[in-house]
Design a protein around this nucleic acid. Structure first.
Lengths: 192, 192
DNA sequence: GGGAATAAGTCGGTTAAACAACATAGATTA
DNA sequence: TAATCTATGTTGTTTAACCGACTTATTCCC
């Protein structure tokens, strides 16, 4: 429908996302209308729909973009799921949660579950990719690989989220030391 | 040809002018190409020409926009050419020169005369408008009004420019006290 | 001087954004 | 409850931006 290389398309997309990010700092997700976004982005309301199906799709992309920007280089290029990589993933996830809940007004908690799901899914993807690239013990069975990645991703996310909700902002080394052994043992990678 | 209300037109115009202002801070006017401007503005080179005839026309508009933004409220709404208004005009002109020559790299002096002419012309317009609005002694004769405005504008500009070139950045009160009596006497307004 | 490279303009065809108008669905209020 | 208002999507038409190609300068370098 739209050519993602056309500079007009690129610019309009940027305007929409930037407007939306600004609005999320000011108000809660469900008080923001398409009209608001279009006005702030200085585009026509109808044009919004050639870029996103609705504001949920837009939120989805915002989350993903922000998350991908935070992936550390070592994780990006990791060929094996090592303790070090596991640490990076944990810290990155925690950092993302801190950032996101600071930026967004989550008064209504309307989008909290959406965000949770999205982040878990992205984490899972990253982890699965590392499993497949390296010769992980179970990588022969794609099905099992996916399940292990899902468990690992949600374990890391849930723990980081609980840490955040408990109000602990310091001593992330403790957080790491709780999650990593659990995950690595679970994967049977501890003694590799 | 282009509809100045269409948001696309407004946005493209802003992008072009902003890109040009940025480039003027980095390089001198005659080293800047249309291609440079278009690239920085993230628009197509051909699109530039639907907005401006060439980079001289663009410079012209940049100068005018910047100048108009500096017009003080009292001058904007003046109904009479008083000492106070005259002071404001002098100070504003001097401030403009300071700003402009700080922003633009005038290495080659290629555009200095263009800028000079433009500013004199704008000053003249402002002054003439005040003459016409108030019942200035000579306002009955439109021709004479224009000439008086031209002389006043260029007198103020030249004096402010000489002051700037002499390197005097302080004591603008002295500058004002030199120009104002000259102009007001010249206009025969000193004893009104 | 002569040839290559780069910039300035121009033009016709294509694509995306603007816009107005419409139908629908919730929310608000009389 | 009926009526008004506001947000959501959708559609067809118009317009401006994109793009490639082309013709002229201008500059640069051999």
């Amino acid at each position: 429908m739209v050519n993602q290389i056309d500079p007009r398309v690129v610019r309009t997309g940027q305007l929409i996302r930037e407007a939306f990010r600004e609005l999320l700092r000011l108000r809660s997700f469900d008080t923001i209308t398409i009209k608001d976004i279009a006005e702030r982005a200085t585009i026509n309301r109808a044009t919004f729909y050639t870029h996103y199906e609705d504001k949920y799709a837009l939120l989805d992309e915002i989350i993903e973009q922000a998350f991908r920007k935070m992936i550390p280089g070592p994780v990006e290029h990791a060929l094996e799921f090592t303790d070090e990589i596991c640490n990076e993933l944990i810290l990155m996830t925690y950092r993302y949660i801190l950032d996101f809940y600071e930026i967004c007004r989550m008064d209504s908690k309307s989008i909290a579950t959406l965000v949770d799901e999205k982040i878990k899914q992205l984490l899972q993807q990253i982890i699965e990719r590392i499993f497949v690239k390296g010769d992980h013990p179970h990588s022969a069975d794609p099905n099992q690989t996916t399940i292990l990645a899902a468990m690992t991703g949600s374990a890391i996310y849930s723990a980081a989220y609980q840490w955040f909700k408990a109000g602990e902002k310091e001593r992330t080394d403790l957080l790491v030391d709780i999650i990593r052994p659990y995950v690595m043992n679970g994967l049977g990678l501890h003694y590799i």
